[in-house]
Design a protein around this nucleic acid. Sequence first.
DNA 1: CGTATTTGACCGGCGC
DNA 2: GCGCCGGTCAAATACG
Length: 319
Amino acid sequence: MLLMEETIKSDNLSFSGQISETGRMPNSSFFDVISSYNCVDHQKTSSFGFLDISDIHDFDFPFSDISTFDDLMLQNISPEQPPVSLTSPAPEYSEVANTSNSSSISSSSTEPAGNGGNQEKTKKQSLKPKKKKVKKEREARFAFMTKSDIDHLDDGYRWRKYGQKAVKNSPFPRSYYRCTSTSCGVKKRVERSSEDTSIVVTTYEGTHTHPCHIMPRGFFGIIPETAAFGSGGGGGGGGSPSHLVMPTPHQMLQYHLHHNTQQQQEQPYLSSNNTFSPTLMQKRPFCPSVSTYSARDHGLLQDMLLPSKILMKEPIKEE
DNA sequence: CGTATTTGACCGGCGC
DNA sequence: GCGCCGGTCAAATACG
């Protein structure tokens, strides 16, 4: 993990300039997005905490070759490669990509968010008497950025908002949500980037212990271990056409892994209503030229914020 | 009426 | 010790 942090520091991350202002989806859903598998030192981190590897102990990443993911993220990164900065220096993002150390991810498991409820209880208890000095361990975190007009993306789970706070150095407040499922203690924070107001940063904390209440149509079906998504067959086959289901973090990783091995790049899996495009995960996100993307792809990609590591492979265009 | 949201207050951690 | 800040609680309110 420390190792990763070092990596991070050396690479000064940021978003890529691939974000376009056009083609924003009215109903942003999870895969407008792109996850940012970044790790941060949550002690020092700014408001944007990406994948907080240091806290990953809850995720039960089922793939033993998770390192593949790392490789995917890292393999093409050369030390000389200067960081790509987006529209702005965005120092907030400088915590950079930290693609997790595979071992740190895959070796986890353990108390899934099931203890989320307990967490709450213990918290309440601690309010009464003097609390112990037991430092509460953080849930695994997973954050991603979305280019969206709406803050709260529908990810297929039901969330109850329990708080909102003003964010320092940002005109936009941060909203706090908790999964409404009683046994599920998953939380998420949603805030809009002050650097780029079209970007919404969503941070998940914990792991769902229940299936998603709605299922997507098509999207996750592309995954061999389809059942994996939705953790157990997930919910009702109902599937709302207007909703896209958000996978859990490890599900996303699965998708990444899978897709990165499929080399399927230009076949949309979703209807036009849905915004996810496989190009998001395309095998060669580091394509040397933007022109590599077809016009169509670009249209689909423009809402996505690619993982910083990936973006860093993009040629830097001085403008 | 049940559920979700809003919002001010409160708490704990951390830096100075 | 104090103040700042992030996160949470919970009463009040809104909504369907």
